[in-house]
Deep mutational scan, measured.
Amino acid sequence: EPLWIRPDAPSRCTWQLGRPASESPHHHTAPAKSPKILPDILKKIGDTPMVRINKIGKKFGLKCELLAKCEFFNAGGSVKDRISLRMIEDAERDGTLKPGDTIIEPTSGNTGIGLALAAAVRGYRCIIVMPEKMSSEKVDVLRALGAEIVRTPTNARFDSPESHVGVAWRLKNEIPNSHILDQYRNASNPLAHYDTTADEILQQCDGKLDMLVASVGTGGTITGIARKLKEKCPGCRIIGVDPEGSILAEPEELNQTEQTTYEVEGIGYDFIPTVLDRTVVDKWFKSNDEEAFTFARMLIAQEGLLCGGSAGSTVAVAVKAAQELQEGQRCVVILPDSVRNYMTKFLSDRWMLQKGFLKEEDLTEKKPWWWHLRVQELGLSAPLTVLPTITCGHTIEILREKGFDQAPVVDEAGVILGMVTLGNMLSSLLAGKVQPSDQVGKVIYKQFKQIRLTDTLGRLSHILEMDHFALVVHEQIQYHSTGKSSQRQMVFGVVTAIDLLNFVAAQERDQK
C-alpha cells in the first residue's frame, strides 16, 4: 500500500453525458421521505430548503428570480454533511469501515464536522487534520463531537509532509485500522450531490432553472449537481466560483495573481482535486475576500440567511453572472454553511477592521482624538531585521541585547519573508524542534498583521487588541530589464502597544 495517494490523481470516472444510468458502476440512493420521529440526527441530513432572495437581486438590477439552496440546514450545519454520511455509508457497505475503526480526514473543517457527527452516532474514533487558518468555532464544535484535532501550517503546499493532507496520511500509516475516506478522491463525494442535492433542486424548481452558481473546494458539490442538471435540464448554465489565490478556475489566465492566501474558508485549493470535473462548468468567476464577507453580511442583514463567507462569494458572483438572465428565468445559488463557524471572524466588526474589510468610518461609535491620525505620526525608528541564514542562537542574543521581542526576517534585497519572535524561538528550542545552530528560517511564521503608514491609529489599535505587534510595510514598484514591473513589500518598522501608548501619553502631556 502506498504511503500516500495524491489528492489530485487523474480521475478514473467514466461518467458521460447521455450515458444510461443503468451502466453506472456505483451504488445510487434515492431521496427517502422522513418519518415524523427521526431514529437519529443523521436522518436530518439532506432535504434542505430552497429560499427566495428578495432584496439583493433587485438591489443589483437582476431581472431573474434568485433562489438560495440553504445547505446550513443540514444536521452539522453545512453541505459537507451529505458527503460525510455518504462516504461512511459506502465504506461500511463495501466492508472497508468496521466497528471500532478510526476515521482520519484532512479538511478545512466542515467535512470534519460532518464526519465527527456521523462518527459520534456510529461509534468510530475520528481524527481531523486541518490548517491553522480555520476558525476556532470549527475546532470547538469538533472537540465537542469527540474528534481529535491536529493543526497544520496554512501556507504548507498540499504535497508537503507538513500539509493537512501529508499529516493525515502519516497518521494513517501509524494508526492500525485507520482510514482516510479522502473527500478529494472519493466518488461518494460527487455521488452524494448527484443522487440527492441535484434531485432536490430539480424537484423544488419543478425542473425549471436557467443558471446554477456554486463555490468550489473539493469540487464534489458542483460536479455532482452539474452532471445531473446537464442530464435533466441541459439549458442550465453552470457557474463556478473560485477565490483569488486558488488555481481551480479555467482558463488558467484567471488564476494569475501574486496573491497566495485568502481568508474565506472551505473553497479554493492549490491543486485540482480528483473529484472535480471542470468540463461540466460553463464559466468560472474569481471572487475576493472583501466581496465575500460584504455579501455574507448582506445576506444575514437583508435576507435573514445566517450563512458563512463562501455563501457571500457565491452570491457576489451570482449578481454578476445572472445579469444575462431575463424576467421569468431563474438562478439558484448554493449557500454551503452557517455563520456559526465564523462568529469571531467576519461577523465581528473588530475582525473586519483588522483585516481591512471594514473602515473605521463605517462604525458610528465615538472615537478618541488620536483615532484618525496616521501611523506615520508615530515617528517610528528604523527596524531591526535579520536574514533567514542567521542562526536561532545568534538571533536570540541580538533580540535580548537590543531589547526586542520580535524581528522581521528579510532577504538580501529587503523583501519581507516573515517574522521571528523570542517566545516562538525559545519554545521551539525547548520542544526540540530546532537547535541553536539551525537557521532562523526554520522558525519563520507568517501569521502576523501588516499595516501601512497611511493607515489610521484606530486601525492599529484594533490590531493591537488581539496581537502583540504589527509590521509596518510599504510597497515598492521595481522595474526589470524586460520592461515588466513587480510590486514588493518592504519593512518600514515594527509597532507595539507600548509605542502607541507612549505616543498618546506624550501628545497629551505636551497639550497640557
Rank of each mutant, 00 (worst) to 15 (best):
Q439I: 07
E397Y: 06
E291T: 10
C307T: 10
L358A: 07
S381D: 13
V332A: 14
P408I: 02
D282A: 07
L453S: 06
Y342L: 06
I463T: 15
L429S: 11
Q450F: 15
D510Q: 05
T395F: 05
V434S: 03
D242C: 01
S310M: 01
T260D: 13
T454R: 06
P408N: 00
V315T: 07
L384H: 09
T314Y: 07
Q259F: 13
D270C: 03
K402S: 13
G356L: 05
R374E: 12
E250L: 13
L299N: 03
D337Q: 02
P336R: 04
L248C: 01
P388C: 04
I300C: 02
S486N: 12
L380Q: 12
G328N: 12
T454F: 11
V410A: 13
V281Q: 01
G245E: 01
E412P: 14
L358W: 03
N502G: 13
M490K: 11
L373G: 10
S461V: 15
L384W: 07
P243E: 06
G414P: 02
F448Q: 11
E365L: 10
T364V: 05
Q406S: 02
A413L: 15
V317F: 06
G328Q: 08
T482W: 06
T395R: 08
G240F: 02
W369D: 07
K442C: 15
S481D: 10
Q507W: 13
P336T: 06
E508P: 11
M298F: 07
V317M: 11
G240W: 03
T391N: 15
W371F: 10
T257W: 11
L422H: 09
A311F: 07
E397T: 12
D455M: 12
I247Y: 08
G483M: 13
D405W: 13
N424D: 15
Q376T: 11
R374C: 14
A497M: 12
G240Q: 00
T496D: 03
Q256H: 12
D242N: 04
A311V: 07
Q447W: 10
E303M: 01
D277C: 03
V409Y: 09
G432C: 04
L417T: 13
E397W: 12
Q439M: 07
S485W: 15
N502W: 09
H394Q: 11
L353S: 08
L306S: 01
T482Q: 06
I398Q: 11
D499I: 03
Y479R: 12
Q406Y: 09
F295M: 14
G328C: 12
T261R: 09
A413R: 14
Q511W: 11
L384A: 09
S246R: 02
L254V: 06
N255Q: 05
L399F: 15
R400T: 04
Q511G: 14
K345C: 02
A506H: 09
G240E: 08
L430G: 05
L347D: 01
L500R: 02
V434W: 04
C331F: 01
L457A: 02
L453D: 05
L430S: 14
A505I: 08
Q376M: 11
D349W: 02
S461G: 14
S348D: 13
S461H: 09
V415A: 15
S313T: 15
L457H: 00
L347S: 02
Q376A: 04
L453M: 13
L422W: 09
F293V: 01
G458E: 09
K512C: 15
G266P: 01
F346P: 05
Q406H: 09
V495H: 08
T496V: 05
K446W: 15
R488D: 05
E291Y: 09
D455N: 08
F293C: 03
F346E: 04
G414A: 04
P383H: 05
W351C: 04
V280S: 15
S437K: 13
R330M: 12
E377R: 06
P273D: 00
Q256N: 15
M298V: 15
Q302L: 09
V494C: 11
P408K: 03
P408S: 06
G403Q: 10
S381N: 08
A296Q: 03
Q302S: 12
T385Q: 07
G379V: 15
G403F: 08
L501R: 01
T456S: 08
V473K: 10
L453W: 09
T294H: 11
E265S: 00
Q476R: 09
I267W: 05
W370K: 01
D438I: 13
E401S: 10
A505C: 03
A413E: 13
E361H: 07
T421W: 05
L457C: 07
D510H: 11
T456A: 15
L387E: 13
V332W: 00
D362I: 05
T385C: 06
P336I: 01
V315H: 05
N424S: 02
L276K: 04
G418W: 06
M490A: 07
I444G: 13
H394T: 10
L464Q: 13
R459W: 11
E508L: 13
A301I: 12
T482M: 12
L373E: 15
I267C: 03
A382E: 14
D277N: 08
L358V: 09
T314M: 06
I463D: 09
V275P: 04
F357T: 02
L426S: 14
T496I: 14
Q489C: 13
T344K: 07
L305W: 00
S437Q: 13
E303T: 11
I390S: 11
E291I: 07
I239K: 04
V241F: 03
I416E: 03
V317A: 03
M419K: 13
E303G: 03
V440L: 14
I238N: 02
G240C: 08
T279H: 14
I239G: 06
K355T: 03
K512A: 13
I300K: 04
L399E: 08
V440E: 04
P243Y: 06
L422C: 15
Y445D: 09
A316K: 13
S348I: 05
L457W: 00
G483A: 15
V386E: 09
V281C: 10
D349H: 07
V472E: 14
S287W: 02
T274L: 05
D277V: 02
D270R: 01
G304E: 01
E250V: 08
E244R: 07
S485H: 04
T385Y: 03
V420I: 14
T364N: 05
T456K: 15
K402P: 13
V473M: 15
M352W: 00
G493C: 14
Y342I: 03
Q329F: 08
Y479V: 13
T274E: 02
S485L: 13
K320F: 11
L464A: 08
H480M: 09
V409T: 14
R488M: 15
Y262C: 02
S485I: 12
K512H: 11
V473Q: 13
N502P: 12
Y445L: 13
P388W: 13
I396W: 08
R488H: 15
V420Y: 15
Q435Y: 12
G240S: 03
L453Y: 06
A431S: 06
Q478Y: 12
Q511S: 11
G268P: 01
R459S: 07
C392G: 06
E365I: 13
G309V: 01
P368R: 12
L276P: 01
P251W: 01
M352E: 02
K355Q: 09
K446Q: 12
R509T: 13
I396N: 10
E265W: 00
G312S: 00
L378P: 06
Q439N: 15
R278M: 04
L460I: 08
D405K: 08
I390P: 07
Q489K: 13
Q376C: 13
I416L: 14
G423P: 07
E508D: 13
V420C: 11
C307L: 05
A311W: 03
E401P: 13
A318E: 03
W370S: 04
D337F: 01
K446R: 15
E244G: 07
V264Q: 04
G266W: 01
Q326G: 13
S246W: 00
A316L: 13
N341K: 05
T496C: 09
D362C: 03
P388I: 03
V317P: 09
M343Y: 03
Y479W: 03
Q487T: 14
E244Y: 10
E244A: 10
T395A: 15
F271Q: 00
P383W: 07
M466W: 13
D499L: 04
E265L: 00
D467T: 05
G458W: 11
K283N: 12
I238L: 04
K449C: 11
L358N: 08
G458F: 11
L457S: 02
I463K: 13
V472W: 12
S437A: 15
F469T: 09
P336C: 07
E361M: 08
G245R: 03
D349S: 08
A322M: 05
H372T: 13
F357Y: 09
L347V: 05
I267S: 02
H394W: 05
G308S: 00
F357I: 05
D510P: 12
V440W: 05
F271E: 02
N502F: 12
G493L: 15
S348K: 13
P273M: 00
L501N: 05
V409D: 03
G458L: 06
K359A: 08
N255W: 03
I416K: 04
Q354T: 11
L325D: 02
F448N: 11
F492S: 15
G328H: 09
T344H: 05
I390A: 04
